[in-house]
Design a protein around this nucleic acid. Structure first.
Ligand SMILES: [Mn+2]
Ligand SMILES: [Mn+2]
Ligand SMILES: [Zn+2]
Ligand SMILES: [Zn+2]
Lengths: 137, 137
DNA sequence: ATCCTACGATGGACAGAGTACAAGTCAAGA
DNA sequence: TCTTGACTTGTACTCTGTCCATCGTAGGAT
């Protein structure tokens, strides 16, 4: 977290109170907040922060590779502070809870050349779906 | 296609001209149209078809399992007529083209029990990203 | 062939998520 | 402290999708 802010400063980021608060809110494992959730949390620390700034800052963090966008449900995008630690997601089909997971083998290797249609494949994103313990009947 | 309409009738679907046209538009491989693209194509055959009906019909086809929703970019959902043939997707990061692919191994098996957090995992969705031949520098 | 009616279609209002932009503010270097 | 370009803000706007009252019709009943 302090790590994150250091890295950002190192990249020539102008450090404003708004950006600091957004970076602080996005902290922890299994964190996947929507932009409006980030805004709500940020508002507790800095009441006057605007929605536009939250969107701007999140967009910059994504561009810098510090945060990744996750869209598991076709609704609002979610922002994941573990951009630097590649992982996949396990989503509960009932309540929407998202957990970070790290599968065994490399899914990229599972795609045969014949199935690549001449693409230069560089990345793979895996979403597991199921029912979480709390939602089990 | 005629197949599809047969199956639908068998399920007690009321066959209207609007539904027929939507089902006809959604036909082929590597087809991943947005609702508004479906509407535009449907309008060529049936000029008075409404956007609401297209959304309704697509929703029903999804519920019936004949069509699957694909959201690769956090923008409009795309509708895939290959609902009955499970497959994954390869997306060009530049132009957005989507191809159907069938990887080797079973990605579900790659998720160790220890990484399942007590979930009953039932499905996995894989999206490969890369650059397509047409977009290569 | 005609009638009935429950189910489907319509369009317009509405809501949620995100972007654009002009004007005001401020971080940080000189 | 001053200056200035980068950042922030609020609002208007776009895009995607849903809701709902009303109208129309597919298809079974007669
Ligand atoms: Mn995550
Ligand atoms: Mn497909
Ligand atoms: Zn759950
Ligand atoms: Zn391309």
């Amino acid at each position: 977290m302090s790590d994150l802010l250091e890295r950002l400063r190192g990249r020539g980021w102008r450090l404003t109170s708004q950006r600091r608060v957004v970076a602080e809110v996005l902290n922890g494992d299994h964190v996947h907040l929507t932009a409006d959730e980030v805004h709500a949390l940020a508002t507790r620390r800095l009441p006057e922060i605007s929605r536009a700034t939250v969107y701007n800052t999140l967009g910059e963090l994504v561009t810098l590779g510090e945060v990744t966008e996750v869209s598991t449900d076709g609704r609002a995008k979610r922002y994941d502070p573990n951009g630097h630690r590649p992982h996949h997601h396990l989503v509960c089909s009932r309540c929407g809870t998202i957990r970070d997971v790290r599968p065994g083998g490399d899914p990229l290797a599972d795609l045969p050349t014949a199935e690549r249609f001449g693409f230069t494949v560089s990345d793979v994103e895996v979403t597991y779906r199921g029912v979480c313990p709390a939602c089990a009947d």
